[in-house]
């Protein structure tokens, strides 16, 4: 990994906290981060979403972009400290993870894989932002936070469903089946069931408000376990 690249990655730890002063000040960090992702893509000739380092880095970028989109019109936002802390924690996780160099394994060279993985991590970022809005709602009972959590979860759910569908198409072309019985697939379905539950529970009288907001937080913990925990603890089809 070139020294200049590492230096610019370090710079992200300084640029992202600028969003604490004003939401739109996250833009320089996002531009630099986006450029690093693109640079990595061109350098290795592949989508830079292989391995924990790449994917955590992309998750942090997607979380920052989602935060900017949701709170664009705010000068300073109470969600800022939580989102920035989460971004920095994810970036730190990315930093300590090993770098995956070299070309993609042949089976990963398809647009279906790229769409599957990009949409998965964008939806993870939206679920993360939904959890942050859930924490804010539990603390302050601001209706805006509850509504933003719902929007994040709904958009995340739609994109996550699309990611699962693209993953199924890819699996059908690569292995002859759109579904494999492995712990990773079971946990992916758990995530999908959980957010289906969240969206339905919001319609049940008496469950709206704090119970559903708490669900949005639990959902992100399940997402993170599915992403990190299952990969570490269980064997699955998502190992290449």
């Amino acid at each position: 990994m070139p020294f200049s690249f590492t230096l610019m990655e370090t710079l992200l730890f300084i640029l992202y906290p600028a969003a604490l002063l004003r939401v739109r000040l996250i833009i320089p960090a996002l531009l630099l981060h986006g450029w690093l992702v693109l640079d990595s893509a061109f350098r290795y000739g592949r989508v830079p979403l292989i391995g924990t380092r790449d994917t955590l880095g992309f998750l942090a970028l997607a979380l920052g972009a989602a935060f900017l989109a949701f709170r664009w019109n705010r000068k300073r936002d109470v969600a800022g400290p939580l989102v920035i802390a989460l971004i920095l924690a994810i970036l730190a996780g990315s930093w300590v993870s090993p770098v995956m160099r070299g070309p993609l394994p042949p089976v990963l060279r398809t647009i279906w894989f790229e769409l599957h993985v990009i949409l998965s991590f964008v939806s993870y970022a939206l679920f993360g932002l939904a959890a942050v809005f859930g924490i804010l709602f539990l603390r302050g009972n601001a209706v805006q936070d509850e509504q933003d959590q719902y929007r994040c979860a709904l958009l995340g759910y739609a994109l996550f469903s699309l990611a699962m569908i693209f993953g199924g198409i890819w699996a059908h072309l690569a292995w002859g089946t759109y579904w494999l019985w492995t712990p990773k697939e079971l946990w992916t379905t758990i995530v999908w069931f959980f957010y289906s539950l969240y969206l339905h529970a919001r319609l049940v009288r008496g469950w709206t408000g704090r119970p559903v907001a708490a669900m949005g937080i639990v959902g992100f913990l399940i997402v993170m376990f599915t992403y990190v925990g299952v990969g570490l603890l269980m064997k699955s089809s998502h190992e290449f």
Binding site: W181, T182, P183, L186, W187, T189, I190, F193, F194, S196, L197, H200, A201, L203, V204, W207, V230, M234, K235
Partner: peptide
Amino acid sequence: SLKTTVWTLFGLICIFFLGSYLMP
């Protein structure tokens, strides 16, 4: 009932959790 939907989904989450442990 929507509550049937919600509790069935919750049950399925618990069952799949059990499955992810029993499979390996």
